[in-house]
Write a protein that binds this DNA or RNA. Structure first.
Lengths: 301, 301
DNA sequence: ATGAACAATCGAATTATTTGAACGAGAAAG
DNA sequence: CTTTCTCGTTCAAATAATTCGATTGTTCAT
């Protein structure tokens, strides 16, 4: 009434691979009669034969042949279960939700996930993008075990631990035919406020609260870096953009650097991976943080 | 040493769903101690707890939570195995390879497979297209259990059984600017031979052997109906095409009917599903043949 | 013909699972 | 604060599932 299907299927597979009950018995380290018993029990459940015993060497019946595929699929799933159990035993997370500031370059993220996936193919990653303020909140309240945020001063770090993982240079850019691009020499910071900024944000929050770089109310917001680039290229406004993302467009003549007095050009922006001290990342989280680390660019003090 | 993992997972799932060991015991019709035993055995295998017993109502540990997904996947796979076994018990094929003449309209096939899939979602269909002569051979030699071929006279039917499943009208067409389309009134059959025919065939065989409609050596062959239509539309030659396939193109003015003395216009073409008398189709094969049957169009004697 | 390899079968032994009863602990009701 | 209910664990006994080794009859290769 309670046959061990998985074990029967393992026997089934071993017989098919070995070509005989005896070979399967040797391979599994059991007596031949145990193999015979298991196959008979399987066939009794199925109510039909999977092996044809009329021949000297047992051979698969058409039904057995048809079942072989499904048996292997089920066994592979069972192996996956074992692998998952082993993972959890070693404190590897099964799912790893990540919340990251939208200004963290997508390319960085993709690079990291590619490296990570090679090590932990079983771990399911989900990514949500939200402003750094929201990242801190979500991590602190343990909605997300891991976050990526801008490394700013003046934030509250109680209960939060983290490490800097990347830095990029941020460029002030506009389209070549934008009025700001026509100005000879450097222009004052105030001049920026006479033109529309295109600003990266996630639609859900009040943009004024989250970026000191927003200088005036004439701001258009978009929620992906590709949309930001497109809108600036179309001359709809000026904006800040990661050097790396902007470079191809600048080389292609679709964007230019702006020369503004008040803004160091290009200015440095640093990102940190963060988590709570109470629930530090497990093995997979550690590996992800290690993958996020970009040591190509030297990190200034 | 040989725990019944699937059973343990069923218990695990029942406890999660019921919220308590007692509820699971009631749901599964077993004693509470059996539930306790099963979960303990599972946890011993895993080497960690899946339920937190410190609370009054048992609750999932984070590890248990993580495993729930995988457990359900594995159980669903096991159910699929049961379903497949049930199918085979009722003589439903697991795979159903089909070999069909390339002139059998793709639309007919898609319609049939859509109906079939609703009844037998577990059955894997594979389709190969080959000339009717090859279909007969492959079915006779049991390389394919089921074939679809042109219903012609003069073939050898020993050991082959079958039934007519569809008929379509076949039209003689060319592009509007083709020389044949410029002729006033009907032209003789011989005139066809002065122009190139575009002919549907599967590349592997000598085309002369397989279609009595091939009238001369200036024949270009293509292996899909869409390619045939395109080439005729481009004015590369004349050809035979199913009325239904041709109609939209004729209405759009991209093709015209040709008026030829020697060819009944449009002429009727009939298709049959065939199998060997020795191995008639099983349940799934029968259902597929039934799905192939198109009774919209009256079948003439 | 003969020996080697194979699979089915049987009874005994072993292992896995179930049961019911006894127990202690938390929760809910009085 | 006690009573009562439900809960999960534990234990020993019972049952079911699986394994083993020995025996038998078969087919294959020599």
């Amino acid at each position: 009434m309670h046959p061990n299907l998985l074990d029967q299927l393992r026997v089934f597979q071993a017989v098919v691979e070995g070509g005989s009950f005896a070979a399967a018995a040797r391979a599994l380290g059991r007596a031949v009669s145990a193999i015979s018993y298991a196959i008979n029990a399987l066939e009794e459940q199925l109510a039909f034969q999977v092996f044809d015993r009329s021949t000297y060497r047992v051979s698969l019946t058409p039904e057995g042949q048809a079942l072989l595929n499904d048996a292997e699929i089920l066994l592979r799933r069972a192996e996956r279960w074992e692998a998952r159990a082993r993972s959890l035993r070693e404190k590897v997370e099964a799912v790893l939700p990540l919340i990251a500031d939208p200004s963290y370059p997508e390319g960085f993220l993709v690079d990291a996930l590619k490296k990570f996936e090679a090590q932990y193919p079983l771990v399911t990653i989900t990514v949500r993008r939200a402003e750094s303020e929201e990242v801190v909140r979500a991590v602190r309240e343990e909605e997300f075990p891991l976050g990526i945020m801008l490394l700013d001063h003046g934030r509250q770090w109680d209960g939060i631990d983290g490490r800097q993982v990347a830095a990029d240079k941020i460029a002030l850019v506009a389209a070549p035919d934008h009025p700001l691009a026509q100005i000879e020499g450097a222009f004052p910071l105030a001049e920026l406020e006479n033109h529309r900024q295109i600003h990266l944000h996630s639609g859900a929050f009040d943009i004024r609260a989250f970026d000191y770089r927003v200088h005036r109310t004439d701001v258009w917001g978009v929620d992906t870096q590709s949309a930001l680039r497109m809108m600036i290229e179309e001359g709809l406004g000026w904006g800040f953009m990661p050097e790396e993302t902007a470079r191809p467009a600048i080389e292609a003549g679709r964007l230019v650097h702006l020369n503004c007095d008040g803004i160091a050009q290009p200015s440095l922006r640093r990102f940190a991976a963060v988590w709570t001290t109470r629930h530090p990342p497990g093995k997979a989280g550690e590996a992800l943080v290690a993958s996020l680390l970009r040591d190509e660019e030297p990190v200034p003090a």
